[in-house]
């Protein structure tokens, strides 16, 4: 895992941004058209966008600029445009939790979140948990307790566990179950995940 965002990879590069400025101008005229079409007489209509639109948000602590159509989900933006493939796509309907990321510190399904709704927000993905080479306590706990089999649910599972640990430094087994109740592991590694959480809790408190 480790650091994610090399220049021009984790976020839109300066060069890519300049290249897209022309598209932005075209998009602006589309917006004007959309506004005109909706415009009755009287108060100004609400702001509206259509087509590729620039958004800015913080991704793993780094200011990020991207262009997205309104129909693009945050998951698609992360995986397909920002090359951040740690976040997994499985059901793509909010029914499995594999795509879980943090939005302002709270877990969300990135498959159901329109990327535009991340505007101005803090997004943390599994790539953003480790500090340099030092794994997040939850990641360390998962490694030590072998809390995965095929590993496909793991990034989402880790994000749910990390959010729980931030809120509750010593969760009970029941609280852990509730904390990961939005994540499904088809390999059935739940018991190992609970042990990993116990370990993570101890590590976060400075235990050995």
């Amino acid at each position: 895992m480790g650091g994610h965002a090399e220049e021009g990879k984790g976020s839109v590069s300066r060069r890519g941004f300049l290249k897209s400025a022309g598209v932005a101008a075209a998009a602006t005229s589309l917006i004007d058209d959309a506004k005109k079409a909706m415009e009755p007489v009287g108060p100004a209509p609400a702001a509206a966008v259509r087509g590729e639109t620039e958004i800015r948000f913080k991704l793993n602590g780094k200011e990020t600029v991207a262009k997205v159509p309104p129909s693009m989900t945050l998951l698609e933006l992360l995986r397909e445009r920002l090359d951040m493939t740690g976040t997994k796509q499985v059901c793509d309907r909010g029914a499995c939790g594999a795509c879980t990321v943090h939005l302002d510190g709270r877990t969300v399904n990135s498959c159901l979140l329109l990327a535009m709704d991340a505007t101005g927000r803090d997004v943390t993905t599994v790539e953003g948990l480790a500090v340099g080479d030092r794994l997040h306590p939850v990641q360390q706990g998962f490694v030590e307790e072998d809390a995965m089999q095929c590993g496909f649910c793991t990034p989402g599972m880790v994000m749910s566990c990390a959010a729980l640990l931030a809120k509750n430094p010593a969760p009970t087994r029941a609280e852990c179950a509730e904390g990961i109740s939005g994540n499904i592991c088809r390999c059935g590694t739940y018991l190992n995940i609970f042990r990993a959480m116990d370990r993570a809790s101890a590590l976060a408190k400075g235990g050995k």
């Binding site: 108060p43 609400a46 702001a47 259509r50 639109t53 159509p69 129909s71």
Partner: peptide, 15 residues
């Protein structure tokens, strides 16, 4: 794809 309206309040949203 769709036009995405970003109203500043409920009145704008309703219109």
């Amino acid at each position: 794809d769709f036009t995405y309206v970003l109203p500043k309040d409920a009145a704008e949203a309703a219109r």
